[in-house]
Write a protein that binds this DNA or RNA. Structure first.
Lengths: 127, 127
DNA sequence: CTCTTGACCTAGAGCCACTCCAGCTCGCTA
DNA sequence: TAGCGAGCTGGAGTGGCTCTAGGTCAAGAG
């Protein structure tokens, strides 16, 4: 798979994929004709995972740690499992923050509506 | 209210509050003895709102726009209302991303467990 | 009444995670 | 065989903080 396909499938940008490769977050990527990257199905799956970890706020340092474990093979399954469980817990926290914000927005919107109504009444009263 | 209290109440760091002030995201903040910032209840409420907008991913440019509207007073209520509604829609998208990631994690965890079990069986079979 | 402590101040440098750019090489098709 | 588009590299630029250096000031301890 070409890098452009890898990007559109994973949701990462082409630049970000190259950046991640430079940082060592990706395993060795094969090269095809003219030195172009050629992503395997496993590569893509890994990009998808990285992408959604990053999108949901996993810090880079943790991603690097996780990538190191991945590159060490099946020995590290239980540690990777633990890392994913840990991140799942973070997701819960983020969801809570989202909910709190949604609540705050709902409150503000209600208040705006009341204010607007108030202004309208003032306006009517003035006439 | 002192800046440290403003920070702990809003969830922003002291540095971030000063940074936001420099950018013009805050209205004029009063100064007390020795030139120290003194935040009013309204200031705090505004910080709390900014904080949760930022925490849930509103980009800086939009925050600046929103702050400008806020500083123009009640004329701009309906525009601010629209901005908040818009952000509420963004929250929904983020929630979806979170959910998809949680799903992916659940799938990966299951697969890890199966792999681990497989290894265990291999191990038993080998003995 | 001086000394120390600690919260706050400003200006500016540093950092992280991208993102963009210049200038290049290929492989294709007209 | 000339032009186009996708990809390559190294390096500069950006957004949003975060940290540091080098100060001021107020209040409590001695």
């Amino acid at each position: 798979m070409r890098i452009s396909e890898a990007a559109s499938t994973s949701g990462l940008s082409i630049d970000t994929i190259r950046y991640y490769e430079k940082l060592g977050l990706l395993p060795k990527i094969g090269r095809g004709s003219a030195g172009r990257r050629d992503f395997s199905a496993e590569n893509i799956e890994w990009l998808v995972l990285l992408s959604s970890l990053r999108e949901t706020g996993m810090p880079m340092a943790q991603m690097r740690q996780f990538a190191r474990l991945y590159q060490q093979g099946n020995e590290t399954l239980s540690q990777r499992r633990a890392a994913l469980l840990d991140h799942a817990a973070q997701l819960e926290k983020r969801r809570t923050a989202l909910d709190r914000c949604a609540e705050l927005l709902a409150y503000k919107l209600k208040r705006y509506d009341e204010l607007a109504k108030g202004c309208h009444e003032d306006y009517c009263r003035r006439r």
